[in-house]
Design a binder for these strands. Sequence first.
DNA 1: CCAAAAGTGTTTCGGATACACCCATGC
DNA 2: GCATGGGTGTATCCGAAACACTTTTGG
Lengths: 227, 227
Amino acid sequence: MNPPSTTQVTTRSHSVALTADCAIFGYSDDSLRVLLVRRAVEPFKGFWVLPGGAMQQDETLRGTADRLLRDLVNVENIPIRQVGTYSALKRHPIRRVVTTSYYALVSPDDHDPIAREHLDQVMWCSMDKLPELGFDHREILDDAYEKLKDELRQQPLAFHLLPESFTLKEAQEVYESILGEDLDRRNFRRKILAYDFLINTEEKKPGIKGGPELYRIDDSKLENHLQ
Amino acid sequence: MNPPSTTQVTTRSHSVALTADCAIFGYSDDSLRVLLVRRAVEPFKGFWVLPGGAMQQDETLRGTADRLLRDLVNVENIPIRQVGTYSALKRHPIRRVVTTSYYALVSPDDHDPIAREHLDQVMWCSMDKLPELGFDHREILDDAYEKLKDELRQQPLAFHLLPESFTLKEAQEVYESILGEDLDRRNFRRKILAYDFLINTEEKKPGIKGGPELYRIDDSKLENHLQ
DNA sequence: CCAAAAGTGTTTCGGATACACCCATGC
DNA sequence: GCATGGGTGTATCCGAAACACTTTTGG
C-alpha cells in the first residue's frame, strides 16, 4: 500500500501527444451526417477519420475543438460537449497519443463552405453509410453518437441541426433519424410546442402539399432548456 | 479556413503531464463519503485533494486510476467510470497538467485498511462537510458526484457501497444520501425487489427492533443491470 | 377533383407517488 | 407491555402512448 505520495506528479512526461477529436454532426438530405476528413499521411493514409488536432501550448482541449470547428466549418458558439478521453497504448501505431473527444451540432446554414473546396478530402457522411475509419475513430464516433442520443432524450438539442426556419415535420425527421425510431406526429408536436422557444412565423412553406407552417427558434429562451 | 491537415499531430509535445484523479466514494456512519488525501508538498501543501497520479508510459489513464485504487484502498474490479478531462491552462500553478477524472464505488468491507495507517494524511470525508480542496478538485468532485447521481437514477449502482449483507433500510439510506432526498419506504422496496438480483438470506439483523431481514447481492445477475 | 400532407383532441395505459395498518423485536 | 422500527397493499395521479378525422395545398 502506497502512501499518499501517489498524489504528486512524480514522473516525467514521456512526450505523450494530447489531441482533441471532434464528431461534428449535421443534418442534410434526410439523414444525420458526420464530418469526416481523409488522412493525407501515414499512418492510416487514405482512411477517413474524425477531424482532430493537437492541443497547443496556450490552449485548452476545448479550445482545440473550437479551433477545429472554426477552421473546418467556420462556426462559433455552437453546442459542443466533451464525450471522453481515449488512452489505449497502441491507439496510434507510432507514438503515444491521448485524445479527448467532443461532439458538436451544426446547422445546414453553416455547413456548406468547406464542402466545395476540398470535396475529395472532406465529406458529410451519412451515419448509415460509414466507411471504415482510421485509428479507433469508429469507437470514438459510436460513443459520441450514444451521448448525443442520451442528451437528445433529455433536452431539445436537435434544433441546432435545423436551418433558421423549419417545419415541425422537419424537426421531427431530425429527431427520428438521430434516435433511430419513428415518433407519433401528434405527440411530437404537442411535446415540443409545450416548450416556449418555438415561434410560429405565420408563413407557410411553399411547394409542399398541406401548406406546413414555418417555425423559428427564440434562442434566448432555448438556452433556458439546455444543460 | 484550414485544409484537413489539422487532423495530423503536427506539433511537439510541450511536456504536458497527464494524470488521473479519482473520486472514491464510500458509505459509512450514515453518510456518503469521499476519500481525500493531504498534499505533502507544494503547491497546495497541506490542502486536501482527490487522490491522483501521473499516467505511466505503459499505462492507460484507466490503468492509472486502477492503480490508485489498489494502492489506496486495496480493491480491484469495482465499478469505476470516467467522468471528464480538465485542461485549463492554470489549473496547476507551476506546470501544465491535464487530468482525467474517474469515480469509483467501494464497499465498507474494503475501505478500512488505509485509514489506520495514515490517519493524518487520508480521510473518508463526509460529502456534507468538505473542506476547501486544492487545485480545481472541488469542481472535479462536484462533476463526479453529479455523474454518480445521474447514473444512480438509471441503474442500481448503490449496492456496491453496501457490505456483503444489508437490510433494505440500509440500502434506502445509501440511496437517500446520494440523491439528497427522502424516498418512500414502500415504493423503494417495491422498486428494488422488482430486480432479480436481491437474495433474501432468511436471516434477521440482530439488535434492531422489528427484526429486519438481511439481503445479499447475486453479483452475476446484478451485472445484467449495469451499463 | 383527387391525392398527399398538415393540423387537431381524446382515450388509454403504465409507472410513480401518496398513504395507513398490522407485525416483530428490543428494552 | 409498549415503543420503535419493519413489513405489506391499494388508490391516485401524471406523463407517455395510441389512435382517426378534418383541412389545406399541389398537381
